[in-house]
Design a protein around this nucleic acid. Structure first.
Length: 253
DNA sequence: ATTCTTACA
DNA sequence: TGTAAGGA
């Protein structure tokens, strides 16, 4: 309906949005645009007669505000952070860093199906208690009568184990264990990054060039955590399986 | 008529 | 944060 004149507006990266458009794109309510603006969180839009035009900068900023709010920051707290970053001149770099650091960690397509399809896949193996546990682990979401698995890989792994005769309850036990261990590993890597790449001062004190440097480091280190875990896990499995096979062969004799 | 602001609950 | 009323 309200598509822009294709061309310069979008191609130049200078997309303009009306109030409703930014609000929808950022997932905030139109009412709050004005509120954030009054509290100094959001720069005023460019005015053209009666209509207010918002830019990509406004959009990125709104997403950041919404995210920070969701993490429990107060409006005043966010205003302080924002002004501190602005005075350091690093607001653009900060938004870029945020994008770099949160990009591509999860690259999976969710799988959606109906309840009937779910029962067909899992058969009588799935009790409602299993479903609750799976939901608690965020392996599955149930809204109404549609079921969504955020990770196709985990769904397929579960089905493979099931077909090989592993009881669903025990798959979920193992899943919960892996889930927790993965969270601990992620905590560990993030803490390392926080301590040695970002440093003790936090992002607020950093200059624009320092933020650029951190974004580079984030890009360079992104694959490292996964590689380390994969390598160590492969080595552990090799040793463990070898020991298991040796034990089996001994008892056969 | 539409878009945005003001003001109040 | 919702919304009724009014300015442009």
């Amino acid at each position: 309906m309200s598509s822009e004149v294709a061309g310069d507006a979008v191609a130049a990266g200078g997309a303009r949005y009306r109030r409703e458009e930014v609000a929808r794109a950022a997932g905030v309510k139109v009412r709050n645009l004005r509120y954030y603006q009054e509290r100094g969180l959001l720069p005023p839009p460019r005015r053209e007669g009666r209509i207010a035009w918002y830019s990509d900068d406004h959009l990125a900023r709104l997403r950041l505000i919404d995210d920070l709010l969701g993490r429990g920051y107060t409006v005043n707290g966010i205003a302080e952070l924002l002004t501190a970053w602005e005075q350091g001149g690093g607001i653009a770099q900060l938004l870029g860093l945020r994008r770099e650091m949160t990009r591509d960690w999860v690259q999976e397509e969710p799988v959606t199906m109906g309840l009937a399809e779910l029962r067909e896949l899992f058969g009588p193996a799935a009790t409602s208690q299993d479903t609750r546990r799976a939901a608690a682990l965020e392996y599955v979401r149930v809204d109404g009568d549609t079921v969504t698995f955020p990770s196709r890989r985990l769904l397929e792994a579960t089905l493979t184990l099931l077909r090989q005769g592993v009881p669903l309850a025990e798959i979920l036990d193992a899943g919960g264990f892996v889930h927790a261990q993965a969270a601990a590993l992620a905590d560990r890597f993030v803490a390392l990054f926080r301590r040695h790449v970002i440093g003790p001062e936090g992002l607020e004190q950093l200059s624009a060039t320092q933020l650029d440097h951190i974004a580079e480091a984030a890009a360079a280190l992104r694959p490292v955590a996964g590689e380390v875990v994969a390598a160590e896990f492969a080595r552990a499995m090799a040793r463990r399986v070898e020991a298991e096979v040796a034990a089996l062969l001994r008892t056969e004799q």
